[in-house]
């Protein structure tokens, strides 16, 4: 994708650091998008410079805020701990002192748990608010996301070539712009399962619309990362 004016003039974000704050928030958002429902408990394992300077850069609040679907520009990011308390989400930050060689210096492993589900995501903040998701449930993946751009739709689907067609049709019908799309498939599973991330910048899908998408054949789940947290 070509460089936009707003990659230079942006993202609009809550400080202090594009990589340690905005990027961290983005990784949290991604983890939450992949998780089904509200987590009861979240653990953050911090590596590299995330482990050493996370408090000064508010990496902890940003990660937690992301898990609660706050945007990188939401001033409430600073109140993440209080919001988590209200929502009764338990959280823990565990700085891992030893170096893990094949991770980028700014890396976090997030484990989300609820009664029924457990999910782990490993992501790195690679600079200027850009992040990379390296592992989902220990399966190697490679998603790159921009902090300013709002990847709003995460879709789980079967690997059938045509399975996304009807979904794209629907989005087109609603005049929803798709500015970027990435698909990752898990090659280890027998019937392959895939995840696709769509960037639908500045377009808000309503809940019935998301539900309509989920009913389409071949689609397992659809998560919309739109603004959700009460003001």
């Amino acid at each position: 994708m070509d460089v936009s004016l707003f990659d230079v003039a942006g993202p609009i974000m809550v400080g202090p650091s594009s990589s340690h704050t905005a990027g961290a928030c983005k990784i949290g958002q991604m983890a939450r998008a992949l998780f089904n429902g509200t987590p009861k408990e979240v653990e953050f394992y911090l590596y590299g410079s995330f482990a050493t300077v996370y408090q000064g850069h508010a990496t902890d609040r940003a990660l937690l805020a992301g898990v609660m679907k706050l945007k990188t520009s939401d001033a409430h990011l600073a109140d993440a701990f209080e919001i988590a308390e209200q929502k009764k989400i338990r959280y823990k930050f565990i700085p891992v002192k030893k170096e893990v060689p094949d991770y980028h210096p700014n890396t976090v492993k997030i484990i989300l748990k609820s009664k029924k589900n457990r999910l782990s995501v490993i992501g790195s903040s690679i600079g200027g608010g850009e992040v990379r998701i390296n592992y989902i449930n220990d399966i190697p993946v490679d998603f790159e996301l921009m902090a300013g751009r709002f990847f709003s739709l995460i879709i789980g689907h079967s690997s059938e070539e045509a399975s996304l067609e009807p979904l794209f049709e629907k989005l087109k019908e609603w005049d929803c712009p798709i500015t970027d799309s990435q698909t990752i498939c898990n090659v280890k599973d027998a019937p392959k399962s895939c995840i696709t991330a769509l960037n639908i910048e500045d377009f808000y899908l309503k809940l019935p619309q998301v539900q309509a998408l989920e009913k389409l054949p071949g689609i397992e789940f659809v998560r919309a990362l739109t603004k959700l947290v009460p003001k």
Partner: peptide
């Protein structure tokens, strides 16, 4: 630095 909203520019 005090976690206000800014534009990274």
């Amino acid at each position: 630095a005090r976690m206000g909203k800014i534009v990274a520019f």
